[in-house]
Design a protein around this nucleic acid. Structure first.
Lengths: 195, 195
DNA sequence: ACTGTTTACTTAACAGTGTTAACCTATGTT
DNA sequence: AACATAGGTTAACACTGTTAAGTAAACAGT
């Protein structure tokens, strides 16, 4: 394993085990058994390292979503599958998911917007499915991209509430998730009422 | 104005103008024209100061929501009003809104969970309205609290996507918001189909 | 075999961070 | 006059991200 990979490994390990706040260059270096300055040989700065980590997480999430795509399936079932895989990924890899949305673009002006736009490719998976539903005349939709973002925003909200532990402790996760997924999908397909 | 208030004022000013990352104790102190250590006379530590700031933002948000409550209004209209006021508050005070959800409970173990639970009182406003809809037999709902959280999570998702600049630049905010609010409310009331 | 260059890394340092202990000084109390 | 308290300060500790300069090994050319 190259040093670059070892640094990434160490960073991820610290992120998951010790949390974002403890993820300092020196601590990463210590775990990778080098000095902190060596990290700068492979990454421009901490933001760069972070962005690489983010990109890896995005790739993982995207792979999980691609895995669940099955054109033979019912359109609505397909939507629900994607929603549930997304939520499951986020809850199973909370730190990886968090890091994707933790870093704020305006606080990293050194980096090109394109990097962030790569996240978008994940939504395009969803937009494609929605477009399929439109072509099959199952739903009425203005713009599949807007719809994809709308759905995704809603799901992200559900996930983020759970991960950030903002949910009332009296509410069980699964019941909350079930109801949310149900609402999100119904709110979306209601636009085309069956004749 | 007491020094405590001046510190809070300076903190908020820095948060809004310079961003969260620049909000250091020494910078706050400089702006409030004292030394950094003086802050510790009024706040236990930085987290405590932050929590106070959060609480103030929550109070503002709650006040905005309470303002829009009008029992004489149509139930669905009432829901939509609340959603839109919530979104407008968040977009008009992005830094204040952000800070509410930025601080992670697990990273502030020094503080009692109760403090975070105070945020909940805002949802209870929503839960009350939902309960009203149930009593008037306009909707069918298992648990008003779960429903309140479900709706709120979805709205939070919409807001957070915009604030964190994660929305595709081709999508106009207002169109996105309109569609999202529409979906969220429809997905919620669909459970009770009119006879 | 002796140079020169590149690669991979380290040491030392700078300016900044949150936080604490110790100190000072003016005010009010007995 | 002696003491206590309130409201600050200075100095320091252990940390942070980051850079400039130095080092030591590997490689290339003559």
């Amino acid at each position: 394993m190259s040093l670059r990979e070892e640094i990434l490994e160490a960073s991820k390990d610290i992120l998951i085990k010790d949390g974002f706040g403890k993820m300092s260059m020196r601590r990463i270096a210590r775990r990778a058994d080098v000095t902190a300055t060596s990290i700068y040989l492979y990454f421009k700065n901490k933001d760069d390292l972070l962005l690489t980590l983010i990109q890896e997480s995005i790739d993982d999430l995207k792979a999980a979503l691609e895995d669940v795509i099955d054109p033979s399936k019912d359109f609505i079932q397909q939507l629900e599958d994607m929603a549930r895989v997304y939520i499951r990924f986020a809850l199973n890899h909370p730190k990886e998911y968090e890091i994707i949305y933790m870093v704020r673009p305006e606080e990293m002006p050194k980096y090109p917007r394109e990097k962030f736009n790569e996240v978008r490719s994940a939504y395009e998976l969803l937009a494609d499915i929605i477009d399929r539903g439109r072509k099959e005349n199952l739903i009425e939709v203005d713009d599949p991209l807007i719809s994809a973002y709308t759905i995704w925003a809603q799901i992200h909200g559900v996930v983020s509430v759970i991960i950030n532990k903002r949910l009332d402790t009296r509410i069980p996760y699964d019941k909350f998730i079930d109801q949310a997924v149900d609402h999100i999908i119904k709110g979306f397909i209601i636009h085309k009422t069956p004749a």
